[in-house]
Amino acid sequence: MDTRLIKSLQQVEELLQATPQIQPGWKSKDECYQWIAGTLKHFRYRTLSKPEKGLIKRYLIVASGYSRAQITRLIKEYLNLGLLKRKQRTTKGFETKYSKADIRLLAETDRLHNGLNGPAIKKICERAYQRGDGRYKRLAGIS
């Protein structure tokens, strides 16, 4: 749906009554943030009454697909800074120790032994590796 055609609060209210959910028309989060900032600017969010602000907030939630809390944070950021800028976080995070194959092997071992407790499965993995099964190399040190 093309939301650029919506110019008045009356049209927003009609849209929300007619459609419970709108398919977003942007390709990236940056575009969505720009659209949200543009919408807040267009409707002069600062000058709206409380019911009108609630209407715009509902519109942003439905049209963007973001949660109420996220939209509230974005509105607050817009009111404080006058613009919305996405903060990209590209930290490495936790390093994976076990591969998907290890996880499948552990699940299969657990299934074959009818769901034994953790220490028993750990001992089985250790013994399997000690007897020469290389698949259990990482699982032999599991805690």
Rank of each mutant, 00 (worst) to 15 (best):
R89P: 08
Q17K: 15
K123D: 11
I75K: 02
S8Y: 03
D2T: 10
L60F: 05
G38C: 02
T19V: 15
Q70C: 13
G54P: 12
L84P: 10
D2G: 12
L48N: 01
G118Y: 14
Q17P: 01
N80L: 15
K57I: 03
L105Y: 01
R131F: 10
Q130K: 12
R104S: 09
S67A: 08
G65L: 03
R131N: 12
L105S: 04
K53V: 00
I6S: 02
K41M: 05
D102G: 01
E126A: 08
K100P: 00
S99A: 04
R73H: 13
I61M: 11
I22N: 06
I142A: 02
T91W: 12
K85M: 10
K97G: 11
E77H: 10
S64Y: 10
Y136Q: 03
K76L: 13
L139P: 13
G118A: 15
I103T: 09
I103M: 11
S64P: 15
A120L: 14
R138W: 02
I124D: 05
E108V: 07
L79R: 07
R68C: 13
H113S: 09
G82H: 00
Q23M: 13
E108K: 13
C125N: 04
D102K: 04
K29M: 14
K97F: 11
V62C: 11
C125E: 02
C125V: 01
Q70H: 15
Y59V: 01
R127G: 07
I124P: 06
L106K: 03
L139T: 04
K92E: 12
E77G: 07
L60Y: 03
R44E: 01
S28V: 06
I103Y: 06
G134M: 14
G25A: 14
F94E: 14
T3N: 07
K53L: 03
K57N: 07
K57L: 06
R104L: 11
L16V: 05
T39N: 02
Q23Y: 12
D2I: 10
S8I: 02
S49F: 01
T47Q: 14
E77S: 12
G115D: 09
W35R: 08
P20M: 11
K29H: 13
L48A: 00
Q23P: 11
P24W: 00
T39R: 06
P20V: 09
L79E: 11
L60G: 04
D133K: 06
P20Q: 12
S143A: 11
L55E: 03
K7A: 09
E108H: 09
L55T: 05
P51M: 03
I75Y: 05
S64D: 12
Y136W: 04
R138P: 00
L83V: 10
L55P: 00
L105P: 08
S49N: 06
L116G: 14
R73S: 12
I103A: 09
G38A: 01
I121M: 08
I124Y: 06
D110L: 15
G141P: 00
G141W: 05
K27V: 11
K50G: 05
R58K: 10
K76C: 09
I124T: 05
K92R: 13
S49M: 05
G132V: 05
Q34C: 08
R86I: 07
K100F: 07
